[in-house]
Simulated scan of single mutants.
Amino acid sequence: MGSPVDQAGLFLLQFIAGLVIFVLVLRFLIRATHTDWRNQIVMFIAKVTNPVCKPFALVLPSKGRWDWAALAAAFSVQVLFVILIGWLTNRDFGIALILLSALTEILNVLLDMVFWLIIIQIILSWLVQNHNPNLDIFRQLTAPILAPFQRMIPPMGGFDLSPIVAILVIKLAQILIVGSIAQFAQTMV
């Protein structure tokens, strides 16, 4: 894929697949963190993702706060994307490589999303002191993730240092766990 048209098409395909996966992983995270479903943003995410998640929900019904259908849909979109990339580039990827590539991408999206949600929440906590339902979603998404870190590291001198430790753990998980899976997948090429 050397021509600019081919590169533009590949970029567009990657953008669309990435956006769909992002929204599906966000849906999973919204449910996992018990974010208020009455929030306008949350209702929009649910409405947009329902058509994609419904077929998966028939096989993988939601259990408590875990929306496995959203993750399965995101994984399937990534699998299709990898297959399509292989087809467009005339490369034959094995099933193990396709599945491991999809797994690493979904894990990276999830961990990147949590990382950026924590960063956004930190910035918003400095800038916005009053209650705003549209911004409150960031607190709702990050509070359950930060809670274990806050129990280990109580606030010191009025500063909550737990987000720094959470970010450190997230990035180490990406490097050690996701990186190891990706490195193993590369041996299959």
Results as ranks from 00 to 15, higher is better:
residue 89 T to E: 09
residue 65 R to Y: 07
residue 50 N to C: 02
residue 106 I to L: 15
residue 130 N to D: 14
residue 45 I to R: 00
residue 157 G to F: 06
residue 122 I to Y: 13
residue 35 T to G: 06
residue 149 F to S: 07
residue 10 L to W: 09
residue 164 I to P: 15
residue 41 I to D: 06
residue 31 R to G: 02
residue 163 P to T: 08
residue 166 A to F: 11
residue 96 A to L: 07
residue 159 F to W: 09
residue 167 I to Q: 09
residue 100 L to V: 13
residue 179 G to Q: 13
residue 59 V to C: 06
residue 171 K to F: 02
residue 144 P to E: 05
residue 112 D to K: 15
residue 166 A to M: 09
residue 73 A to T: 05
residue 99 L to W: 04
residue 136 D to A: 07
residue 91 R to S: 15
residue 52 V to T: 10
residue 92 D to Q: 10
residue 158 G to N: 08
residue 88 L to P: 07
residue 135 L to N: 04
residue 72 A to T: 06
residue 95 I to R: 04
residue 173 A to I: 14
residue 48 V to N: 11
residue 40 Q to T: 11
residue 136 D to I: 01
residue 78 Q to M: 14
residue 38 R to G: 15
residue 56 F to Y: 04
residue 159 F to C: 02
residue 98 I to V: 15
residue 116 W to G: 11
residue 44 F to T: 07
residue 101 S to L: 00
residue 123 I to H: 12
residue 120 I to C: 13
residue 11 F to Q: 04
residue 24 L to G: 01
residue 156 M to I: 12
residue 117 L to H: 05
residue 52 V to M: 12
residue 173 A to L: 15
residue 157 G to Q: 06
residue 41 I to R: 12
residue 56 F to C: 11
residue 181 I to S: 09
residue 19 L to I: 15
residue 42 V to M: 09
residue 86 G to V: 00
residue 44 F to I: 14
residue 19 L to Q: 05
residue 55 P to W: 13
residue 187 T to E: 04
residue 180 S to C: 09
residue 146 L to K: 00
residue 86 G to L: 00
residue 165 V to F: 13
residue 106 I to R: 08
residue 137 I to N: 10
residue 126 W to N: 03
residue 6 D to Q: 14
residue 88 L to R: 10
residue 176 L to T: 10
residue 173 A to M: 15
residue 185 A to Q: 08
residue 16 I to M: 10
residue 105 E to W: 08
residue 123 I to L: 09
residue 130 N to S: 12
residue 180 S to Q: 12
residue 33 T to Q: 08
residue 109 V to P: 00
residue 30 I to F: 06
residue 160 D to T: 08
residue 10 L to S: 14
residue 171 K to I: 02
residue 143 A to L: 11
residue 42 V to E: 05
residue 96 A to T: 12
residue 174 Q to C: 05
residue 185 A to E: 10
residue 52 V to E: 08
residue 85 I to D: 00
residue 164 I to A: 11
residue 95 I to E: 04
residue 64 G to A: 03
residue 55 P to C: 11
residue 115 F to K: 14
residue 80 L to R: 04
residue 175 I to S: 03
residue 120 I to G: 15
residue 58 L to A: 03
residue 140 Q to A: 10
residue 26 L to S: 01
residue 187 T to I: 05
residue 147 A to E: 08
residue 48 V to T: 08
residue 33 T to G: 09
residue 80 L to K: 05
residue 80 L to P: 04
residue 5 V to L: 13
residue 90 N to V: 01
residue 68 W to L: 06
residue 64 G to S: 04
residue 125 S to I: 13
residue 139 R to F: 03
residue 110 L to D: 01
residue 137 I to F: 07
residue 77 V to H: 02
residue 51 P to G: 05
residue 111 L to V: 11
residue 7 Q to D: 06
residue 170 I to R: 05
residue 37 W to A: 13
residue 75 F to D: 05
residue 109 V to T: 13
residue 120 I to P: 13
residue 58 L to M: 12
residue 158 G to P: 06
residue 111 L to A: 04
residue 173 A to C: 14
residue 113 M to W: 08
residue 75 F to I: 02
residue 88 L to N: 03
